[in-house]
């Protein structure tokens, strides 16, 4: 029953139709969440007692950092599904996620650096979290580079899936080794942002923003998948039918 649903959903014509219906709703939801999150974060949330107003970049920085890791896992899982069951849509979701994930990682790094300048007095410190985020960006770049390097896109998707799965096994190892490295080398020289239990008025907009980013990711991945489907089978029968309807 479940598998039948998966197969039905993952057939390109069905997916194309249903994602087209979902997109306007998702876009509306995204703007609603974004509007509320930004208003809550930038206007109603109280200023931080230590950092003043500059803490407000958290509403972009933290959701972006969460997304960067979340998307890698999504990419690996959908890649794995594509490898095992040879579902074309899963392969496409996997590779479409890669550049979105890389963008979120980049965004997290840039906003972190902008935040770090007034707080730590430096654009960049070799802190454990920053470094593992940077390594994550390299992992994404490797995935994108490999996909673009292989001519045949089916083969490329499988190669990327293998690489993403290897990466997902490695991410915890990299994360903990980097964390350990930092504590060994730097000790107390970098005073991390100690996190007091965050005020509820600050927390709610943060969670809403995180949700908004997730919805944005879904929108972006659906759009990319639709494009990729059209690009991969330009002569598909269902596309002809689609064009007929448009006329």
């Amino acid at each position: 029953m479940f598998m039948r649903f998966i197969y039905k959903f993952s057939s390109p014509p069905y997916f194309y139709a249903i994602s087209g219906k979902m997109l306007p709703w998702l876009t509306a939801l995204f703007f609603l969440l974004l509007g509320y999150g930004l208003y809550g974060g930038l206007v109603t949330a109280p200023a931080d007692y230590q950092q003043g107003d500059s803490f407000r970049i958290i509403y972009v920085h933290v959701p972006a950092a969460w997304m960067s890791m979340f998307i890698y896992v999504v990419m690996a899982i959908s890649g794995g599904i594509g490898l095992v069951w040879r579902i074309k849509l899963a392969e496409i979701v996997s590779i479409s996620s890669a550049s979105i994930g890389a963008s979120f990682t980049f965004l997290a790094l840039v906003t972190g650096s902008l935040w770090g300048k007034p707080m730590w007095g430096a654009w960049w410190v070799w802190d454990a979290r920053l470094t593992s985020e940077l390594v994550l960006l390299f992992l994404y770049l490797g995935v994108i580079g490999l996909y673009n390097g292989i001519e045949d896109k089916r083969t490329a998707s499988r190669a990327v899936a293998i690489l993403a799965l290897v990466g997902v096994v490695n991410i915890p190892i990299i994360h903990y080794s980097v964390e350990w490295w930092n504590t060994l080398h730097q000790g107390a020289t970098v005073s991390k942002l100690d996190k007091p239990s965050i005020h509820i008025d600050m927390l709610i907009p943060l969670l809403v923003m995180a949700l908004a980013f997730k919805v944005y990711y879904v929108i972006a991945v659906l759009l990319r998948c639709r494009n990729e489907l059209l690009e991969r089978e330009p002569n598909g029968k269902w596309i002809d039918e689609l064009l007929e309807k448009v006329k």
Partner: peptide
């Protein structure tokens, strides 16, 4: 190099 070096980090 791009594929391998991040995995060499640990």
């Amino acid at each position: 190099a791009i594929l391998v070096l991040p995995l060499y980090v640990p």
